[in-house]
């Protein structure tokens, strides 16, 4: 019995030392699931939130018959020019709009036409070269004008930060809302369900 107990104690010591060594040693890059909670998390928007947000918006929009089942596919622009970040988290809104556009475009499979306004300068330059005869008309022929827009996807990111100075608990609620605006009538034809995340954290007392 005594030997058995000594054995268990020794095993615990070895395992404990191994765990300590593991926590102290660094490790090389590892693949993490972008849809799951990462190794390092904070109170702001993370990659998994962007993916969830994008997924929910795509499902929502593609279930609207007035939008996707029209005889002529509607033309829409999805970029970050009207994705306003009013929150206290510094972030690159292109990351959200790019993810949304890619997911929506792939899922729509031609039922929605996507227009780029970010490449407008390049488009104008190429059109000018073609019309001057400096380059040929390529393989698709020439259009009378660049494509006009039916809708623009806009969005706003806001946050509400709070702190309990007694406990040091900090909390941040972030809300993202997307809205589809008819660019002819200015009607808001769709608004997403508010995507809300609320996370809290507490720093060590020596930093309070």
């Amino acid at each position: 019995m005594k030997q058995w107990l000594v054995g268990v104690a020794a095993l615990q010591l070895v395992l404990g030392s191994a765990a300590l060594a593991q926590s102290k040693n660094g490790h090389g890059a590892v693949d993490l699931d972008p849809t799951a909670r990462g190794n390092v998390t904070g109170t702001g928007i993370e990659m998994r939130d962007i993916i969830r947000m994008s997924d929910s918006l795509v499902r929502d929009l593609l279930q609207r018959p007035d939008f996707v089942n029209s005889p002529k596919p509607p033309r829409i622009v999805v970029d970050s020019s009207r994705l306003v970040n009013k929150s206290s988290q510094r972030l690159d809104t292109d990351m959200i709009s790019d993810n949304l556009r890619a997911s929506l475009m792939r899922a729509a499979a031609g039922r929605i036409r996507f227009i780029s306004r970010e490449a407008m300068e390049d488009v104008a330059q190429e059109r000018e070269l073609k019309r001057q005869g400096q380059v040929d008309v390529a393989t698709r022929g020439m259009a009378k004008a660049v494509a006009g827009l039916d809708f623009k996807l806009t969005g706003r990111i806001t946050s509400l930060d709070s702190r309990n100075n007694t406990t040091g608990e900090q909390q941040r609620a972030m809300q993202v809302v997307f809205e589809l605006i008819d660019l002819e009538t200015s009607e808001s034809v769709y608004i997403s369900e508010p995507f809300i995340i609320q996370r809290g954290q507490r720093d060590d007392v020596v930093y309070r």
């Binding site: 306003v84 970040n85 009013k86 929150s87 206290s88 988290q89 510094r90 972030l91 809104t93 946050s159 930060d161 702190r163």
Partner: peptide
């Protein structure tokens, strides 16, 4: 301006 806004807001927090 968006990230400037976020920075000043966080500074204020």
């Amino acid at each position: 301006y968006n990230n400037a806004h976020a920075s000043f807001k966080e500074a204020e927090f």
